[in-house]
């Protein structure tokens, strides 16, 4: 395996930055997320970032196009993404899996979301294995291998004071080619992941939910929920959006922005009716979507076990407890 000392990581990133716009997981302003690589950023390798990389592909607010009224007609103007390839370094397996989920939503079933596709096509990924799961991680229970990510161009391995690198795709081989001179060949093995603290058995949960739309557990599960959007906004797989516009005189900018099924306003109809009037229906939707509707449509869970929702929930509504409750329900 080709390896590099963690202490020399920045040399490699510097080389890659000549070719790509490099994004790295870093501590910033009392939180952490993927930011543009610069020599002085505080890269974190010992835990996953608090805010998922989904905004690289699906920004919280994304301008779509502009309109301008000219007398009695209207001119449309496209908004193009900044040119150039991006490279995401250090994406964990759970977040790579969430990109797999996003691909299903935005690129399959005969519909292509151009906004997403443009961004997705311009990003090369270097996934990074986890040596020690964080306390809230439960990816293995959701069928994600923390040592080998799906869809990565390069798989990196955390080898203690070194990082091992393995090209997976053609794009990945190009990346390795660029930094080859800075890597050494060593007989390292794919590491074993540490023990997971959170344990849950999610087998069969999707099928079990088939008859549970009217189950009394939703009353119970939802009572403590505040219907904030924290869990869905930090979730790497949640992908709901709303389309709105900014109007300034004759100029209109259409944009889309994240929305959350936890908000009452999300299902508010123009006539005043709301089909999900209380927290019960909203919480039920969140878990049904993740664990039943999505698997039904795309044959995969819409939860990667990253544990972020557990981390931010103000009232500790824990998805692993909900899964257990579903499985134990009569």
């Amino acid at each position: 395996m080709l390896v590099v000392l963690k202490a020399k990581l920045k040399d490699i990133l510097n080389t890659l930055a000549e070719e790509y716009k490099v994004l790295v997981p870093a501590k910033i302003e009392d939180t952490s997320k993927f930011i543009s690589y610069k020599d002085n950023v505080d890269i974190i390798l010992d835990e996953n970032v608090k805010l998922s990389p989904k905004d690289v592909f699906f920004p919280q607010t994304e301008k779509m196009y502009k309109m301008k009224t000219v007398k009695t007609s209207m001119e449309l103007e496209n908004i193009t993404d900044e040119a150039g390839k991006k490279l995401l370094f250090g994406v964990r397996s759970c977040d790579m899996k969430s990109l797999d989920c996003f691909d299903q939503v935005f690129l399959t079933k005969g519909y292509i979301d151009e906004f997403y596709k443009n961004k997705r096509d311009s990003v090369v990924t270097i996934a990074l294995s986890c040596s020690q799961p964080m306390q809230t991680c439960f990816c293995s229970a959701m069928g994600v291998d923390s040592q080998k990510a799906v869809g990565a161009d390069v798989q990196a391995y955390d080898l203690g004071d070194k990082i091992g690198l393995e090209a997976i795709s053609d794009e990945g081989s190009k990346v390795i080619e660029l930094i080859k001179g800075q890597l050494t060949e060593e007989g390292a093995e794919v590491p074993q992941p540490g023990e997971f603290y959170l344990k849950v058995d999610a087998d069969g949960v999707s099928e079990k939910l088939n008859g549970m739309f009217e189950s009394p557990i939703w009353d119970d599960v939802s009572k403590k929920c505040l219907n904030c959007g924290a869990c869905t906004y930090v979730c790497p797989t949640c992908h709901c959006f709303d389309i709105s516009q900014e109007v300034r005189g004759e100029n209109v900018t259409k944009y889309r922005c994240w929305d959350s099924c936890m908000f009452g306003e999300y299902t508010q109809m123009a006539g005043g009716h709301n089909p999900r009037p209380t927290k019960k229906e909203r919480v039920r939707n969140r878990f049904m979507h993740k664990l039943n509707y999505f698997p039904d449509r795309y044959n995969m869970l819409l939860c990667t076990g990253c544990g972020r929702c557990i981390n931010v929930c103000p009232v500790n509504l824990d998805i692993t407890s909900v899964i257990k409750q579903i499985k134990e329900a009569e």
Binding site: C228, G229, Y233, F263
Partner: peptide, 14 residues
């Protein structure tokens, strides 16, 4: 500080 606000409204709802 407010550049990073997610507008999750957890602060309001709690």
């Amino acid at each position: 500080n407010y550049e990073k606000c997610l507008r999750c409204y957890a602060c309001r709802n709690v």
